[in-house]
């Protein structure tokens, strides 16, 4: 199955970078608001920050359910939807972990920022295909993140 691309605006990239670097060595997390659907380009309008309420935030994240609820309401009010989530890996690898796979939902985009020493080094996106992660190409992004 071909994975549709995802378009991330500069503002969303900036949010993920800043929060991922600020939260280091903990994981930052949030939601992606936009439009999408099966087999079509996913267009992200904004990356929303959410609280990581997991007890071990250096290796895990759990989005605060109240933040998720608020984001759902806001997206609906704007005629948009939550199309996925983003989080950072403080160990620098932007590939999904076994925990990411175990917790993933079908139909969502999973953006992961690899952060090393409080600097984002890479940004990749993934999507479940047949219960495994397949990379979802980020439109206009090579996967490498260049310094500011």
């Amino acid at each position: 199955m071909r994975v549709p691309r995802i378009r991330l605006p500069a503002g969303a990239l900036r949010t993920i970078r800043e929060l991922g670097e600020t939260a280091w060595p903990h994981e930052a997390c949030g939601l992606l608001e936009g439009i999408g659907g099966p087999g079509v380009l996913v267009r992200v309008a904004r990356a929303l920050p959410c609280r990581n309420v997991h007890a071990t935030p250096s290796v895990r994240y759990t989005i605060d359910p109240e933040d998720f609820l608020r984001a759902e309401h806001e997206a609906r009010a704007r005629g948009l939807m939550i199309v996925g989530t983003w989080h950072s890996h403080p160990h620098g690898d932007a590939r999904p972990s076994a925990t990411d796979l175990a917790e993933a939902w079908p139909g969502w985009s999973y953006v992961i920022a690899g952060v090393t020493n409080a600097r984002m080094q890479s940004l990749r996106c993934w999507r479940l295909v047949d219960e495994r992660f397949a990379e979802q190409p980020i439109a206009g992004n090579s996967g490498e993140v260049h310094s500011r």
Partner: peptide, 8 residues
């Protein structure tokens, strides 16, 4: 109904 959004 809000499912957990989590990972590692």
């Amino acid at each position: 109904v809000m499912p957990s959004v989590a990972g590692g």
